[in-house]
Design a protein around this nucleic acid. Structure first.
Lengths: 185, 185
DNA sequence: TTAGTTGGTTCGCAATCTGAACCCAGCTAC
DNA sequence: GTAGCTGGGTTCAGATTGCGAACCAACTAA
């Protein structure tokens, strides 16, 4: 995508090589996310995935291949004669869980019908419900997206001097919520 | 997708009407997520989005229309003569931020090059870095996805009695990480 | 008058998705 | 020993979707 964008003189809010774009090259589409959801539920085999998702075989084969290539899954032989394989999440794959949990919680909050969320996610040892909203350890308080700002990460001092616009700036900006339509509970 | 799946006698890990699937009907594809990323960066106008993302006009028009329909954006006229519009995040849209932050942090951790993440997200008042990993308030400790379990939400007592498999069960299962390929830092 | 801006729509071609059919190795029942 | 099943795919034709380019409409500025 937008790699050749250097002619703009506007402050570059997002450096080239945005991590979201990079992540999206691996988490490509809806099917990929549903495959990951099933993987977290312990479904590991081609045919089980196919049956559960009702996904076309060619698409499933393609997505599994590309997820193995990118290191999200490992393909392991679980029996010989006949050869049979399963797909397991690597540590890299396991760490995709916050994305799935966020999606699920957003769906629960904004899209579930009258009956409320079909299932709750809880911390197993104590059964406390999981909440993926933002919390600051230093201030000891929850905060909203509008309080998030973005700072240069591993940027060299030289880069910073030549690009003052890269210094701290709000990352997420709140829309004008007063006149907006959707609200809930 | 898999709506007609009631004939299976296996324990139904995910009830029909999964919130992740529901969320994916709105957060449809890569373009939608990139539009949302830009919205959080304060980009609100058709042409600014088009330039920044280098997205085909027809796709952008279509995605904006559908995001307005689903209540993620509001379309607001910001001038008359000629009529000009902008797209702003509703509260529903603002709450998509954990998904974007999770994607970004995963990309930072697993896909960034030698130089590390291009930017850090911080809590503005205190500049503490934002961390979207799991934390339990009751146990006062961070935990891994394997400690997440899933419990029935608003399920009636009758449903529960007739479907004992719906009771508490692990939601996210860890792969066999010992033999897996990818590890980092 | 001409060019530029903003916010689109229309069109034809290209890429991708989809269901159905097929393949193949090994196993199992008859 | 052969018909049929299972698991894990590939191949193929047709439908859907994506895409760039061109065009449109309403206005402004030079």
């Amino acid at each position: 995508m937008s790699t050749a964008n250097s002619s703009s003189s506007a402050p570059q809010l997002q450096p080239p090589g945005c991590s979201i774009e990079a992540a999206l090259e691996i988490v490509r589409d809806r099917w990929t996310i549903l495959i990951l959801r099933d993987a977290f539920r312990g479904i590991r085999r081609f045919d089980d995935l196919r049956r559960d998702l009702e996904i076309p075989r060619a698409i499933l084969a393609d997505r599994l291949r590309s997820l193995v290539e990118s290191g999200v899954f490992v393909k392991r032989q679980y029996q010989q004669r006949p050869e049979r394989f399963e797909y397991r999440l690597t540590p890299m794959g396991m760490e995709l869980s916050p994305i799935l949990v966020s999606l699920m919680q957003w769906g629960d909050r904004w899209l579930s019908g009258e009956e409320g969320p079909p299932r709750l996610l809880v911390h197993e040892p104590c059964a406390t419900e999981i909440d993926m909203s933002f919390y600051c350890w230093t201030c000891e308080e929850a905060f909203t997206p509008s309080q998030i700002s973005s700072q240069p990460g591993a940027v060299t001092a030289r880069t910073l001097q030549s690009q003052p616009a890269l210094q701290s700036q709000p990352a997420l900006q709140e829309g004008d919520l007063k006149n907006s339509g959707a609200t809930k509970s």
